[in-house]
Amino acid sequence: MAAKPHRLLPGFGLALGYTLVYLSLLILLPLGGLVLKSAELGFGQILDIALGERSLAAFRVTFGASFLAAAINAFFGLIVAWVLVRYPFPGKRFVDALVDLPFALPTAVAGITLATLYAGNGWLGRHIEPLGIKVAYTPLGIVVALTFITLPFVVRTLQPVIEDIETEVEEAAASLGASRWQTFVKVIFPAIFPALLTGFALAFARAVGEYGSVIFIAGNLPLISEITPLLIISKLEQYDVLGATALAVVMLGLSFVLLLAVNLLQWWTANRHNNAEPLEVAAGKASGVST
């Protein structure tokens, strides 16, 4: 540390040390153990397990459904967040609290509830199955469950960012002759896009790892509606710990690459708009949203 930057609060060394120990214990240790265990298998064997017909189908279902669920929430979650921030209406606090419920509810309860609702004899299933739309026990059911589970991630990520966009910004855009559509596309959206990506990434990551709610509504048919976490459990039930580890490691790697890509995209969009940092907007430092 040649040039010691001035800091308002002391204890940087202590805090950094704490952070590193904490993260190591909590994240690196178990994940490292996982990777170490998988090293008992050769790379070729891991690949064999991951590229099996059943594993490939499961990866497709898991990542596909997670992507769809995150995308649906990115769109509808944005609307929910916008409404919750911008419009006062009676019962707003109540609706705001509702958004968090999927966080708190045990996922198995969510899965059973959704399955009951959408099954052929359920409240909703009874009306949509005659129309030829089957939700429970199909891949569509998986998307529904994951959408439910991941809604709060998008909404809660977007809310503070939207709160920080002053209404004056919109008024300024309007007074400069921008149409409503232009105001949204050129002024509002670029400001919230990085946060939207973060919300999307969080939702996606959560969905990929989800097990509890999905197994109750998926049908779990091999090659059709079987998710990777279930395949991992199947392997464990056969005492095939190494096979399960191999799948887990591949899943971990894929998730990491995808999240990294989203983060890079976010960084790129933030820079493209000459905002030093997307969260600086949230900190209220950027005075105007450049277009």
Partner: peptide, 11 residues
């Protein structure tokens, strides 16, 4: 002929 494969007997 099996439309749903639950993970356990109770399921």
């Amino acid at each position: 002929n099996v439309p749903v494969l639950d993970s356990g007997a109770r399921g």
